[in-house]
Amino acid sequence: MKNKDNFKLTIIDYGSSNLYSVINACKTFGIEPEVSSDHNTIKNADAVILPGVGAFNEAMSNLQRLGLIEPIKEFAQSGKPFMGICLGLHLLFERSAEFGNTEGLGLIKGSIKKFPSNMEQNFKVPQIGWNLINKADNNNWEKSPFSTIKEGAFMYFVHSFYADAEDPEVILSKTKFNDVTYCSSILKNNIFATQFHPEKSGDLGLEIYKNWFSNIIQ
């Protein structure tokens, strides 16, 4: 296992994302990530974070334009630690209904759907705010970076679309918003991804980063 000084963490840069807070969260634990869209940098990284804010179709076309689709897939399949955040979770799925039908990276089975809004019940979209994460019906929680987090912890969410995972075994947590109970994080071998923003979820969110790092760095 590598230590902090020779550990190479790459945050994938594909344009629109706001990376500052993710970088800041890593620095809190003494880790200096490299922000890059270079294929070799990604390939040679020890761990990768795929962040994301914005629209699915635009993100996919940016990844396409930068030739990043295959490098990301290869990295995710290499067994090395991979973390997706928000749109970075959505992109792992097969397809999204956001602005027509767009194909995703296809690493996780299922699709991305839109939250219904309901004015009578004051159900607004996007979800912008804090919500609970609860355990899925499997034992993923204990073997994930949530292992030290209590079920029912509050995390910060910003999204209009949610993931509908086909395989219940990849679901790490569930969250309810506007009458929809959805998959708010996934764990599939080395692939860990959250719908919420751990880097914006206060001290508990930082603990998730800490746990992720502690499993991969000496």
């Binding site: 706001n18 629209a55 209009s160």
Partner: peptide, 8 residues
Amino acid sequence: AEVFGSST
């Protein structure tokens, strides 16, 4: 909204 996403 197009460049940064509505939620920004």
